[in-house]
């Protein structure tokens, strides 16, 4: 039977395979790029909207 403590230990000590690690690295980069793009998107949109007029015209 697996107790709570050993289960946590199993989770913490799990070592990803090289393929899993590569996938995780690509996911992390993608998330970082998306977050940066989102920041830029909101920032520039705010500037454009402050220009006034319908739909930033």
């Amino acid at each position: 039977m697996t107790t709570g403590a050993t289960r946590v230990q199993e989770i913490e000590t799990y070592t990803p395979t090289p393929e899993e690690a590569a996938r995780r690295r690509k996911r992390s980069i993608a998330i970082a790029v998306i977050l940066l793009a989102l920041m830029l998107l909101v920032f520039v949109t705010t500037i454009v909207r402050l220009g006034g007029g319908p739909a930033g015209a």
């Binding site: 697996t2 289960r7 989770i11 799990y14 990803p16 899993e20 996938r23 690509k26 996911r27």
Partner: peptide
Amino acid sequence: MIRPNAATPGLTLGGQGAVE
């Protein structure tokens, strides 16, 4: 890293897919 396996039943957090 958490992934579903026999030792951790019920742990199906996902998030393991490739970007593609």
